[in-house]
Amino acid sequence: MSRRTSTLATAGILVAALIAVAFLLPVPYVTMRPGPTVDALGTYDDKPVLQVEGAKTYPTDGEIRLTTVSVTRADSRVSLPQAVIAYLDPAEAVVPRDLVYPEGQTAEQVREENAAQMASSQLTSEAAALTAAGYDVTEVVTVTAVAEDGPSEGRLEAGDHLLSVNGTPVTGTDQAVELVSGSKPGSVVELGIRRDGKERTVEVTSQTSPDDSSKARIGVSLGTDLELPFTIKNNLGDSIGGPSAGLVFAVALYDKLTPGELLDGATVAGTGSISASGEVGPIGGVQQKLAGASEAGATVFLVPSGNCAEAAAADDFGMRLVKVATFDDAVDALEKLSDDPKAQVPTCS
Results as ranks from 00 to 15, higher is better:
175 Q>G: 08
201 T>H: 11
292 G>I: 01
51 Q>Y: 15
77 R>S: 12
150 G>E: 08
348 C>V: 01
180 V>G: 07
209 S>E: 00
165 V>C: 05
84 V>E: 04
48 P>Q: 11
256 K>I: 09
57 T>G: 07
317 F>L: 10
301 F>L: 05
225 D>S: 13
1 M>K: 14
227 E>Q: 03
28 P>G: 10
10 T>E: 06
297 G>F: 10
28 P>V: 05
188 V>N: 12
245 A>L: 05
296 A>S: 15
166 N>H: 08
194 R>K: 14
142 T>P: 06
255 D>S: 14
94 V>F: 01
115 A>Y: 04
262 L>S: 07
227 E>V: 09
210 P>V: 08
164 S>P: 02
79 S>M: 03
198 K>T: 15
236 L>R: 03
180 V>H: 11
184 K>A: 13
311 A>D: 02
275 S>P: 08
20 A>M: 05
150 G>P: 06
138 T>L: 07
322 V>H: 02
262 L>C: 10
46 D>E: 15
283 I>S: 02
170 V>H: 00
96 P>Q: 13
157 E>I: 14
280 V>A: 07
205 T>W: 05
89 D>S: 14
183 S>G: 13
16 A>W: 12
254 Y>S: 09
63 E>H: 00
5 T>A: 13
305 S>K: 06
190 E>F: 06
25 L>A: 09
68 T>G: 00
134 G>R: 06
100 V>N: 02
24 L>W: 14
314 A>Q: 01
329 D>E: 01
48 P>E: 03
342 K>F: 04
31 T>D: 05
85 I>D: 10
129 A>T: 01
151 P>Y: 09
252 A>I: 06
202 V>M: 14
82 Q>T: 03
245 A>P: 00
215 K>S: 07
265 G>L: 15
59 P>I: 11
219 G>E: 05
22 A>M: 07
92 E>D: 05
47 K>I: 01
135 Y>F: 12
333 A>L: 10
259 P>H: 06
187 S>K: 07
299 T>R: 12
134 G>F: 02
321 L>M: 02
156 L>G: 03
112 E>Q: 10
35 G>Q: 11
108 E>C: 12
233 K>W: 13
329 D>N: 00
343 A>V: 03
172 G>V: 14
179 L>P: 05
94 V>W: 01
195 R>I: 08
204 V>D: 04
38 V>Y: 09
264 D>C: 15
319 M>V: 03
332 D>Y: 07
25 L>K: 10
189 V>W: 13
81 P>L: 15
243 P>R: 02
87 Y>H: 11
216 A>G: 09
130 L>M: 14
281 G>L: 15
52 V>T: 06
138 T>C: 08
146 V>C: 12
182 G>S: 10
56 K>F: 02
65 R>S: 06
12 G>S: 11
233 K>A: 13
182 G>L: 03
3 R>V: 09
277 S>W: 04
207 Q>S: 04
195 R>L: 15
13 I>W: 03
309 A>M: 04
284 G>L: 14
173 T>S: 07
121 S>N: 12
220 V>N: 04
128 A>K: 04
315 D>N: 13
280 V>W: 06
92 E>N: 13
